[in-house]
Amino acid sequence: MREIVASKITEAVKNLCVNANIDLNKDVLSALNESLKTETSPIGREILRNIIKNAEIARREKLPLCQDTGLACVFVEIGQDVRIIDGTLAEALNEGVSRGYKAGYLRKSVTGDPIARKNTGDNTPAMVHTEIVPGEKIKIQLLAKGGGAENCSAIKMFMPSVSQEEISNFIVQTVETSGPNGCPPLIIGVGIGGSFDQAPLLAKKALLKPIGRRNSNSDTAAWEKELLKRINQTGIGPMGLGGKTTALAVHIEKKPCHISSLPVAVNINCHSHRYKEAII
């Protein structure tokens, strides 16, 4: 049994919040640079260059990449041989978010009651998903998720008779419906299977995969590639003003489901794909 002090978790989460918001990951930057090789729209090319320039300014001056510094979506894998001492996990995570959003001058974008809509003032609570895994470490993945792209997401409960083509159509249609609103070029997470609650969670987890890493199942990997091609043929383009770069990646995650069901969820993220992880 390994003991981990709760304050260590708080410190790690604080740093993840700040770093995710100012330092765009290399995989996203490479994908943006790569898209400049194929984008033919003059406005689209200028927008891609502006996005890359913005990432340079944000890193150099430690300024948030986007004014929407997001809802803190936290995925925690806790080794079953870990015991957290001097505090609870939930408090440690939320304290980390609160401190990180304060220290990094990040915008507080969370309401308390969703109808009354009063700002909680410190960007808590975090959206936390925990999983118990073998081992004696804690892995924390943080996705700072903007509201615009999140609003473009969708779920559909298909019947098992549906064809793969029809599922593809739903995914592409979700992107078409969102058009410019999700801040393309997008990162698209698709969750297939599970129950009504599990499919969107799978879709969100799919966003955490590095861009360019295909699904380990070759059929699913081919499907990801085909979807990316179709989405980039829609013409939506950077910021929705027309072009060949509508998405940088499509990642699919699958899970077993009921014999009567086939849930499909699409979670959309913007090009400002802010994600970091830490292992304690």
Binding site: K53, N54, L63, L65, K108, G121, C183, M239, C270
Partner: peptide, 27 residues
């Protein structure tokens, strides 16, 4: 329209900012 997510760069073009109403709304 302005490309979303180019917020750090846009801050350079702002020379003065003043809250003129509803300070209680925070951001």
């Amino acid at each position: 329209a302005i490309p979303g997510g180019t917020a750090a760069a846009l801050a350079k073009n702002v020379k003065k900012a003043t809250v003129i109403a509803y300070p209680e709304l925070g951001p």
